[in-house]
Structure formats: C-alpha cells, structure tokens
Design a protein around this nucleic acid. Sequence first.
DNA 1: TTCGAAATGTAGCCGAGGCTACAAATATCC
DNA 2: GGATATTTGTAGCCTCGGCTACATTTCGAA
Lengths: 148, 148
Amino acid sequence: MPDKYRSPPPTLPPEQAQAERFEKARSAQATAVLEDYAELISDLIATEGEARPTDIARRLGVSHATAIKSIARLKREGLATSKLYRGVFLTEAGENLARRSRARHRLVVDLLVAIGAPRAAAEADAEGIEHHVSDETLAAFARYLNRK
Amino acid sequence: MPDKYRSPPPTLPPEQAQAERFEKARSAQATAVLEDYAELISDLIATEGEARPTDIARRLGVSHATAIKSIARLKREGLATSKLYRGVFLTEAGENLARRSRARHRLVVDLLVAIGAPRAAAEADAEGIEHHVSDETLAAFARYLNRK
DNA sequence: TTCGAAATGTAGCCGAGGCTACAAATATCC
DNA sequence: GGATATTTGTAGCCTCGGCTACATTTCGAA
C-alpha cells in the first residue's frame, strides 16, 4: 500500500502543533541577528569596499562593543573571519546566508508594498518579518508578485 | 540660528534611517513574549475556563519554570495577576493587549493564506511575523482582504 | 615624526528567556 | 484521613544581546 493511502497522517494534537509553531518562531529569532549582520557586512563590502565594526554598529544602531561581540559570535559559527584591528569578512557560508537573507528581505518589502503598505512601513516591518518567512511562504510571495 | 530651530531635514540620513528600523524591530521583539502569553492566557480562559501555568507551558513548548518566570514579568508589567497556586488572570491592559494581538494574528494568517501560502506554513510563520506588523501595514492587509 | 583623535578591542554589568533540580502546596484516590 | 501524584513555585545556571568604562592600536595631521 502506497504511503499516501496509509492512515497515520501526522495529525498532531493541536496543543503540540501550537508548541511546535512557537518553537519554530524562537529558533528563527535565534538566527535573526546572524542574518542581519551577514546581510549588512555583505552590503558594506559591496558598497564601501570594507566592513568595519564601527560602521556596522552605526548602521544597526548599537554600540560598537555590542557589534564586536556579535561579530565574535559570527566567527564562532563559521560565518565570518577577521584579524585584530582589521575589517570583517564573510566566509563562504556567511556569503550564502547573506545572499539568502537579502533575497528574502527584498521579496518581503516588495510584497508588502504590492499589498498596499506605505513604503516606509514596509521597509521597517520587513526588518523584523523577514526572519520568520518560511521557504514555502516565500515561494508564495514570489508567485504572487509574478502574477501581478 | 540655532540648530534646534532649523527646519528638520525631511529625509533622514539613510544610515540613521536603517538604524531606526533595526531599533524598531528590536523593541517589537521585546514585547513579543508578552503578546504571546497574553493571547494564550486569554484563549485558555475562554476555552478552558482557566489559565494554569502548566497548560501555558505545554502550549508554548516551554518548561513550566520558564512559563512561571514569564508570568512574573507579565505581572510586573501590569498585564496579569495571580495568587499563589491559583490560575493566571489578565488585567484590563492585558485583555486589551490580548485582543489586539489576536486580531493581528488572524489578519496575518488570513493574508498569508490569501497570497497563496499553505495553511500550515501560514500559521507557523504568523507566530513570528505578527509581532512585527505595524498598524499601517496591518491596515493595508485589511484593505487587501476586503477587496478580494 | 610625534601626538592626539578615532577606531578597535576587553571587561564586566544587566535583563530576558531558556533549562534542570529541588521544595512546597494542592488534588486525587483508596 | 493519609499516601501518592500532580501542579506550582524557587533556586541557580546558561547564552544572548544590550550597555558603559577603560585599554590598546591605528591613522592622520601638524
């Protein structure tokens, strides 16, 4: 009997399903900072030629100490490299993350604008929303924008 | 003429604008937990007649100790009340927060589904997205859904 | 070339939100 | 009513991402 006719559709107890949704949101949040930094570092390198902690801090609106600490985390996770008193660079993995994040970010902004949100609100909201959009939903966004 | 009397530049330096967007996203994140709890407590009281820490913890997929600590924060912030070994209740402010959160949550799910996202993905993503949707964007969602 | 300003890095603090382990109160069942 | 199970609460630990204060390094300008 093919799988598709087998009985056990993962009809999770609704309680557990809800718990899983919350867990997913929490784990998305945990990587949000990494995505923001990767995206920003990549942009800075592209437009300024280098990504320096002070610039990163100013763009994110945090103290330079906070930026440096987060950059340390990026390094721990294998997303970035840097030498003392030199700029920050992305590893291959970091570049990939940055690329995906940027693409998602743009799609989210475009979709919000297409729906009718004011540009400024769309850009502000996208900063928080982008980290929680799954690939499936993202694909739906892309299809919608193509249709228009 | 002192700076403070000068007409403010209509366009913020882009750097600063970006920093403000990130700050907004961070502050939204700070209230996300409160919103989730308020919404859930309100639902539990409506459907079960009471909101008990163990149930809250199970629904959120978190240990009961974590739930109790967060409930303590809700109380500190004037959103909930509880007596020792008794259930949790929302204050007027807590009810208001719950009501707004629930409305926003529903709108977000509905919009994602309307755009074409699979229901399950929409519900999962909404859990994270809802906390970052501004009133302006929310209004755009409502208009869009009405048009359809 | 030196010296002061700017950038970078380090140390240590805080609160939030996770966790486990243990203690205390309440509910349940015989 | 008393033993046991469940629920609730407390204590203490962790990481993360904020911060300020201070130390060090680099850079630019006199």
